[in-house]
Deep mutational scan, measured.
Amino acid sequence: EKTLKIVADSEEEAEALAKELAEKYNLEVTIERNPEEEGKYVITIKIKP
């Protein structure tokens, strides 16, 4: 299993990107607040072998 993390500037941007990735590529995608940067969100994508 591989994990890729993407940082987005807004929750709306994160949700839109996560939804597109999940639907288009059938990936497991989660969104959470970035504890290191206020106002940023981390999109985590898990790629199963």
Results as ranks from 00 to 15, higher is better:
18 A>W: 04
48 K>L: 12
32 E>S: 12
18 A>E: 02
37 E>M: 14
24 K>L: 08
21 L>D: 00
6 I>M: 05
21 L>N: 00
2 K>Y: 01
4 L>C: 15
34 N>D: 15
26 N>H: 11
49 P>H: 15
8 A>H: 01
42 V>W: 12
12 E>T: 06
32 E>K: 06
41 Y>W: 15
27 L>C: 13
48 K>T: 13
31 I>A: 01
44 T>Q: 04
8 A>W: 02
13 E>L: 11
25 Y>T: 04
7 V>K: 13
47 I>M: 12
3 T>S: 09
41 Y>P: 02
5 K>E: 07
1 E>S: 07
8 A>N: 01
24 K>W: 06
16 A>C: 10
11 E>G: 03
7 V>G: 10
5 K>I: 14
11 E>D: 03
4 L>H: 10
14 A>H: 00
49 P>N: 15
6 I>G: 01
24 K>V: 04
45 I>E: 01
14 A>E: 00
36 E>K: 12
19 K>E: 03
32 E>T: 13
34 N>K: 05
40 K>E: 06
47 I>Q: 06
22 A>H: 11
4 L>W: 10
29 V>K: 00
34 N>L: 15
33 R>G: 05
12 E>W: 11
15 E>R: 15
40 K>S: 10
20 E>F: 15
47 I>F: 14
38 E>K: 11
6 I>D: 01
34 N>A: 12
28 E>H: 09
31 I>N: 00
34 N>H: 15
4 L>F: 10
29 V>L: 04
27 L>W: 15
37 E>L: 14
23 E>K: 12
10 S>H: 02
31 I>L: 04
36 E>W: 12
19 K>F: 06
3 T>K: 09
12 E>S: 09
44 T>E: 03
15 E>G: 04
31 I>Q: 01
47 I>P: 07
9 D>L: 06
37 E>C: 12
17 L>T: 03
38 E>D: 11
21 L>G: 00
26 N>Y: 08
19 K>D: 02
44 T>D: 01
41 Y>L: 05
34 N>F: 10
34 N>S: 14
32 E>A: 11
18 A>N: 01
49 P>A: 14
18 A>I: 06
49 P>C: 09
11 E>P: 08
36 E>Q: 12
48 K>P: 14
36 E>Y: 14
40 K>V: 05
42 V>G: 01
10 S>E: 01
16 A>E: 09
17 L>C: 05
34 N>Y: 13
26 N>C: 10
16 A>H: 08
20 E>M: 15
1 E>W: 01
20 E>V: 13
45 I>K: 00
24 K>N: 07
11 E>F: 15
13 E>T: 05
29 V>I: 07
10 S>V: 01
20 E>S: 11
39 G>H: 06
1 E>I: 10
25 Y>N: 04
2 K>R: 10
26 N>D: 12
13 E>G: 03
28 E>P: 11
48 K>R: 14
22 A>S: 13
26 N>L: 05
9 D>T: 08
